[in-house]
Write a protein that binds this DNA or RNA. Structure first.
Lengths: 147, 147
DNA sequence: CGGTATCCTAAAAGATACTG
DNA sequence: CAGTATCTTTTAGGATACCG
């Protein structure tokens, strides 16, 4: 069960599946799976999605809300634009501008973005449900480290 | 619908929920939600989880499989240990050592880790299902940028 | 063998000033 | 107002050498 031959035998199928779904090869970092996972894992994108799930927001108001939500950390103008652009590029967020001068810019989820939120909430709820055991595991681990 | 007063009215509930689930305040970066999301979004953790989902692996074999899966990128010893430690700390992975000299080290998912994989696959499948529209959105976006 | 320590590069994120 | 450009700081990740 330990040498490479067995690995080849047992995992030929598994490896194909995994390589297919994570797509580490070929397309590299531009594969949708990697991008979406990285996006959800970065510092602001998921929070932005959660706020946009509540409605359509003007740029300024969205920023105000984000700053309000995270009392300790303050999203920078640059990150705000950068992350919104990223989400827009993947087709999760729609950016709308009026013809006013200066133009008013607002953001909302696309249907696909809305749809993604189902999965996000699934994960969010999972973590909530396991908050206690996770924190216990951490304490156990950290205690063992100190010895 | 635009000034801060309205935001306060409409979102008082929403804000509490969001702040509660993302926990940007107080506990800071040590909140389970942030940690788990960041973990799944990093370069190796999810792939490690997927491989461990297939069974228990010796350290060396696990590394061999990871390198095999990602032909272009090669996980370093350091990241291997670091990411496994992180997953172990959250209680998702279990590390077992024998009393041999040198000791043999193997890793597998915990029950909680196994359980998390349900959500991970949900997200994975979502991306697979939306691979085409995502790539279309990207092309559309990138075309607009060039003008 | 499995892990640690050290050093280095690359990428993420923040601060600030500027522009139509 | 919304975005861009530039610069700096911080963090993720990699290369390598060494240790029990």
């Amino acid at each position: 069960m330990i040498n490479l031959e067995d690995i080849r035998e047992d995992l030929r199928e598994g490896i194909r599946q995994l390589a297919g779904s994570m797509q580490m090869n070929g397309a590299g970092r531009h594969d949708p799976v990697r991008e979406i996972f990285a996006m959800l894992g970065d510092k602001w994108s998921t929070l932005i999605l959660l706020v946009l799930e509540l409605g359509t927001w003007r740029h300024t108001d969205l920023r105000r809300i984000l700053i309000r939500l995270s009392e300790t950390e303050r999203i920078s103008q640059r990150m705000m634009t950068l992350k919104l652009r990223g989400l827009e590029r993947e087709g999760l967020v729609e950016r709308k501008t009026t013809a006013d001068i200066p133009p008013k810019v607002s953001y909302c989820l696309t249907d696909m973005g809305q749809n993604l939120m189902g999965e996000v909430h699934g994960l969010l709820n999972w973590v909530e449900r396991h908050r206690v055991p996770i924190q216990q595991a951490r304490m156990l681990f950290d205690d063992g480290e100190e010895l």
